[in-house]
Each structure stands twice: as structure tokens, then as C-alpha cells.
Design a protein around this nucleic acid. Sequence first.
DNA 1: ACAATTACCTGTATGC
DNA 2: TGCATACAGGTAATTG
Length: 274
Amino acid sequence: MPELPEVETTRKSLLPLVRGRTIETVEVFYDGVIKNMPALEFCQTLTGQRIEDVNRRGKYLLFHLSGGYSLVVHLRMTGQLVFLGPGGLPGPNARLVFFLSGGGQLRFMDTRKLGTVHLVPTGCWKQAGGLAELGPEPLEEGFTLEAFVGLLKNSKCAVKSLLLDQRRIAGIGNIYADEILFAAGINPRRPANGLDPVERERIYNAIRDKLGQGLQHRGTTIRDYVDGKGERGDFQEHLQVYSRAGKLCQRCGATLVKCVVAGRGTVFCPRCQR
DNA sequence: ACAATTACCTGTATGC
DNA sequence: TGCATACAGGTAATTG
């Protein structure tokens, strides 16, 4: 499940491999991945454009192209963007293949077909998908404690729901939400507007800590995630709660409990997160 | 206006 | 062994 650390790791690994290369040919194996135009128009528009830069916003990857267009990619659950040498079979999960100048190819693979691609004029890349409504980047300087407190005060929803709401904070998904709340010692069901100042600051610090740790470990590979070079992350070896239901809390020894919050599987420690 | 639920998808795990 | 079912979850669309 690519979240901010996984998408950013993909961006960083792809950038030196694809920047400056020209898209010579595009092959579409699953039309449904392209959300805002027919496949033929998509291929024709992309052909001949050079990749100038690769950016990230929330969980979206943005490929800015020389011809005035930007390719906006969301990996959703099982999407992978991998750079490979020339040749080789595309494989059953290949949805798009971009053949690049210099002999390499950028493959978008996605077992579950939930990933999305938009091709938009660079000047209005915010119109693609849900980009227009994304909240602040949690690792940027503008995301202060005061800004975070402002988000919490007006919302009575469960604090985990708030962390997952991309309109409020961009980039946090189910894995990091559970890890953040464990690190902060906060029960996922606690109403956001019922937290005291000390608790708010613990969550704020945990957001930065856990996303930063995820980045340092080059992401979490539970099953599908790999970066732009096809390499797995290793933060899964450091998870405290996610995917550990029924196992023992490494802090207090209690048995970790699984429940449903905001419609998603949620693991927490009933003793450390009351 | 806001919150909860369903649709989109398929590989994996589980139950009978 | 084979088949049916539940589950995984990010986001858009729908329902309450």
C-alpha cells in the first residue's frame, strides 16, 4: 500500500533514471487505467515528450513533460512504477509501458487495476483526480503544530479517520495511521476534538517521526510495494502494530487487538492506547 | 453539511 | 481437491 514514504521513495529512485529521457512509444495493456482521455489520444499526446522532472504531492506522482503536459499517477493499492532495461516480457500485470530514449522502459504494473493515470496540461495538474482537494504536506515546514491543532479542533470524527482524510493531511494511509497512533499512545477511536494539548503534540510529533522513519527505510513492503528500481523497502520489519493483531505489544506485552475504524482494519494496543 | 457505506479490482487465505 | 467466501484498502460515488 503505497503511502507518502513509498511514493516519495519511488519518486527519488525514478528521478535519475528517467529525467531527460524522451517517451518514444507507449503501449497500453489496460485502457481503464487512463481516466481522462481515450488510450489513443493518451499515446499520441505523450509520444515525443521529454520527462523534465518527477514530483510528488500526497500519494500522487507527477511527471512533468516538455510538451506542456504532466502525467499524474496514483498507485492506489498494488501499483508499481519500475524502470527496466530494454526488452523482456511485459508480464500479466503490466498496464502501461513507456519506451524511453536510451533504451530503457518505464512500466506501470498493477495487479488489482485500481491505480489511476491522468494526462493534463502542466498548468492545471491540480485538476487531475483528487489533487485539487489535497491537504497540506505533513513533512513540509508549513505543517506546524498550530496548523495540525487547527485541523483537530473542528472535527469530532475519530482521530484515525482524520489522519486518513487526504483533504486534511496528504499522504497518510492505513499502515502509517496505525503506527502513528501507537507511537503517540492514542486510541484510534478518540474524537479528534476531544484531545488535550499534550496528546495533540504527541500525534503531531508521531506523524513526522513515523513518516520520516518510513522514508529512511525506503518504505514498507508487506506484499507488492517496490520502488522504481524494483527494490523492496524494509520498514515492515519495524512495524509496531500494523499486521500484528493477536501478537504481543512490544512496549507493554499486552495482546494487540484488531477492530474497524473508518471502515478499515485497525490494530492497536488496548493498554498503551486507551 | 457531514459521515458512513458501497463500487472498483484480484490475489491470498480460510472454511467446508 | 475443489469451490465458495471473506478480506486486504485508497479513492470516488452514493446513500443516510
